[in-house]
C-alpha cells in the first residue's frame, strides 16, 4: 500500500505539469481556436535551450530565464505563423498545421540536441517538501501543482474580470466581428501564444529532471496535455487541471504495479479514448434508436 502511495505521489509532479500543459491547451483553444499540438515541443525548446546554456557554463538562474524566453519566442513565432497565414482556416486545418509543425520541431530538435545523447537537466526545485503518510512529497511536485492551480485560477479571473479578457472572449467567438470593432485581434492572439509558451516552458523545466531527457519524448508530453484538455472538453480550466493531475496520479499508480508499469505510457491514450467514447454516447444512442 505504501508503495502505491509513493508511486501516486511521484505521479503528482508529472500530473502538475500535465495540468499546466492541459490548461494551456484549453487557453489556446478557447481564445485562438487552435488545438495546439506544439505545446510541449515549445516547452521542450525552452528547456533544452536552458540546458545548452548551462552546459556552456552559464549559471542556472539566468539560464532558466533565457530558457523561458526561448520557449516564449518559439511560441510567438508559431503564433505569428498561425495568425498571419491561418487565421481564417478551420479548426481542423489549424490543428493539422500544428501537428505538422510538431513533426518538424521534433526532427529539428533531435538534430540540434544530439538525438538520444543524454543531457543533465538541473533540478529547479530539489529536495523534499514534506512527508505525507510516510511518503516524501518533492518540492518539484508541490511547485508544479501550485503553479497549475495558480495558472488555472489566474486564467479564469483574467478572462472574467479584465477588459482584455473580455475582448479575448469576444475574439474567440467571432474574430472578424471583433476586428471590425477595432479590437487588436492579431496582437491579442500572439499574446495568448506568448503566455502559453512561457507557462509550458516553466512546467517542462521543472519536470525535465524526472523525464526521459530527449527532445522527442518531452515534445510528446502533448498527449497527456491534450487528454487533460479533453477531460475539460477544451472549455473548462478546472476540469483540465483536475484531469491533468488525475492522469499523472494514475500513471504513477500504474508504474507502481509491476504488471502495468510497462503500459503506464498508455494511460493518456486510454483517457482520450474513454472521453471520446463518453462524449459520443448520445449520438450512438440516437443512432441506435
Amino acid at each position: 500500500m505504501d508503495g502505491l502511495l509513493t508511486a501516486a505521489t511521484a505521479g503528482l509532479s508529472a500530473g502538475g505539469a500535465y495540468a499546466i500543459l492541459g490548461v494551456c491547451a484549453v487557453f489556446t483553444y478557447r481564445l485562438v481556436a487552435v488545438v495546439n499540438f506544439t505545446g510541449a515541443a515549445i516547452g521542450a525548446t525552452g528547456a533544452f535551450a536552458m540546458v545548452a546554456l548551462i552546459e556552456a557554463g552559464m549559471a542556472q538562474f539566468p539560464a532558466i530565464v533565457l530558457g523561458v524566453l526561448a520557449g516564449t519566442l518559439t511560441a510567438t513565432a508559431i503564433g505569428v505563423v498561425m495568425t498571419r497565414w491561418f487565421s481564417g482556416a478551420t479548426a481542423s486545418t489549424k490543428a493539422a498545421v500544428t501537428a505538422a509543425l510538431l513533426v518538424g520541431m521534433i526532427a529539428v530538435g533531435l538534430r540540434l540536441t544530439g538525438g538520444q545523447d543524454a543531457h543533465l537537466f538541473p533540478a529547479v526545485a530539489p529536495g523534499s517538501a514534506f512527508r505525507f503518510a510516510g511518503v516524501e512529497v518533492t518540492n518539484a511536485g508541490v511547485l508544479t501543482v501550485i503553479l497549475a492551480v495558480v495558472f488555472t485560477f489566474a486564467a479564469e479571473t483574467f478572462l472574467a474580470r479584465t477588459r482584455t479578457g473580455l475582448r479575448l472572449r469576444a475574439l474567440s467567438e467571432r474574430p472578424m466581428a471583433a476586428e471590425l470593432m477595432g479590437i487588436p485581434v492579431r496582437r491579442l492572439a500572439i499574446t495568448v501564444w506568448m503566455l502559453t509558451g512561457a507557462m509550458t516552458t516553466v512546467a517542462l523545466i521543472i519536470i525535465a529532471p524526472q523525464r526521459s531527457p530527449n527532445f522527442a519524448s518531452m515534445s510528446l508530453l502533448v498527449v497527456p496535455a491534450l487528454a487533460a484538455a479533453l477531460i475539460g472538453a477544451f472549455s473548462s480550466f478546472r476540469a483540465a487541471l483536475l484531469g491533468g493531475l488525475l492522469i499523472g496520479i494514475v500513471e504513477g499508480l500504474a508504474s507502481g504495479i509491476d504488471r502495468f508499469s510497462q503500459y503506464r505510457g498508455a494511460v493518456p491514450f486510454i483517457v482520450i479514448l474513454a472521453v471520446l467514447l463518453w462524449s459520443q454516447r448520445g449520438a450512438r444512442w440516437d443512432e441506435a434508436r
Binding site: L166, E173, A178, E179, L180, I183
Partner: peptide, 30 residues
C-alpha cells in the same frame, strides 16, 4: 479592417453578429 475601425469606420455585418456566449452588457463593454 482593425485600423479602419479605429479610424472611425464601423461595419455591422449581415446576420446579427453578437458574441453569443457573452451577456448583453458584456457585448456592449467590448
Amino acid at each position: 479592417p482593425g485600423d479602419r475601425a479605429r479610424a472611425g469606420l464601423a461595419l455591422i455585418e449581415q446576420g446579427r453578429t453578437v458574441f453569443a456566449r457573452l451577456t448583453t452588457e458584456e457585448n456592449l463593454r467590448v
